[in-house]
Nucleic acid binder design. Structure first.
Lengths: 225, 225
DNA sequence: TGAAATAATTAGATAAGGCTAAATTTATAA
DNA sequence: TTATAAATTTAGCCTTATCTAATTATTTCA
């Protein structure tokens, strides 16, 4: 059918396409996949030949209608596994990513559906990322605003945090910053650092700009732009 | 580390070594792995270079002390997964083999240990095959006698059934032949076919010689040889 | 607008795991 | 014990996914 590696490329293209809604450049994909550019070029040719992507040399790549559901299926597997590992197998949310990243390519749809059933058809994974339904619908997912885009004084609810860095996740949970947590924005430094006061009462936490940009939120007060 | 394919070879050698306690021939391994002989030869060179097997050209192969625990770990994964799929994810015992065969290479030891814990450290998989402990101990496993070696009139308990053929497994469970079932041997035909009467009362079942040889049992009466 | 910088592709190599055909070793049996 | 049969290995090729080095497009900016 399709190798685990090819699935990973499709997943990456899906992700990067949503990040910057434009065709995905070879260089961006190479960086993200941690391979050299020629590797990406040759892979794009293969995926393009099999109609999973639309590839125009020197112009970047995008998923076709054949490629999208494959990416979504893998994403569904990944996020269900993450949910399952934390909820049923007592994994810490910081450590689920790697295990899910391997298993996502090897579980059957049946396996995915069974754990979804066991979990009560969850809508999001432990990091707040939306889980596509069995028929690969993602319409329920809301985008949210970037934490970095709020203003001092705003009260916001955390919707999503990035899932790949275990150390960051441990740091965030230690300071009470989890999906669902309500925080007040107490300071935004000129170099972009955001200081928060979580309602858990653990005291203020400062986050560098990069992190604040990758955390997705929902406004509770209306003062944000 | 070690590819999924290499792990499969080690698992196969472990199995074949126990079947016919002698060095495993290239041809036997090729047949079992469903590849051509030269493929086996080149793989044995690689595994031998890395000290997982002892390989003597033209003389067959056997696992080293480095290779055995790797095979056992994979077998542990496989059997725990089979148990987990049937007990927690409502799989039928006939369909667990293939899913487990893929996943066994991709779950971490942690994952295996967690599901073992959830299952209460089970001793056997759904087909009656013993599950190595976390420290890869298999001393608790008893060999049992082949069903085919009993005599008419014997009352025997089913210990293990072969796990790879879904159709056979469906047939066996439909007729009440499961690990733990007690059956009476009512006939042994000259061409090896064994007829059983399971205590479940579903009436007699006939099994061809090959199947009767691959089912492992324990005597309840003492009349068997 | 044209030269320099940047991005992307082509060319050619490598390692893993598989294959077929040919050569070689071991086993069998006359 | 020697000739044939069977088993095994060698040789050489293929595909996938990767790499480096060299070439070619595309941008950028003076």
């Amino acid at each position: 059918m399709l190798s685990a590696i090819m699935e990973d490329y499709l997943k990456a293209i899906y992700y990067l396409q949503n990040e910057a809604d434009d065709r995905v450049r070879t260089s961006v994909l190479a960086e993200y996949m941690d391979v050299e550019q020629p590797t990406v070029t040759s892979m794009m040719k293969k995926l393009s030949e099999r109609d999973f992507v639309l590839y125009e040399p020197y112009r970047g790549v995008e998923l076709t209608d054949t490629g999208v559901p494959i990416a979504l299926e893998i994403i569904r597997h990944h996020r269900l596994l993450e949910r399952y590992l934390t909820d049923h197998l007592e994994y810490d949310w910081a450590e689920v990513h790697d295990e899910a990243d391997r298993l996502e390519h090897h579980i059957s749809s049946k396996f995915a559906d069974r754990i979804a059933e066991q979990l009560g058809q969850p809508a999001v994974d432990p990091h707040g990322d939306p889980i596509p339904t069995a028929n690969l619908d993602v319409s329920g997912a809301k985008d949210g605003e970037r934490l970095a885009d709020h203003q001092v004084g705003d009260s916001v609810q955390i919707v999503r945090v990035p899932d790949t860095d275990p150390d960051l996740l441990r740091y965030l949970s230690k300071h009470g910053i989890l999906p669902g947590t309500v925080v007040d924005v107490v300071e935004i430094a000129p170099f972009g650092m955001v200081t928060l006061d979580p309602d858990s009462g653990d005291g203020p936490v400062a986050l560098p700009e990069e992190v604040a940009c990758s955390i997705s939120t929902q406004s509770l007060t209306q003062s944000s732009h």
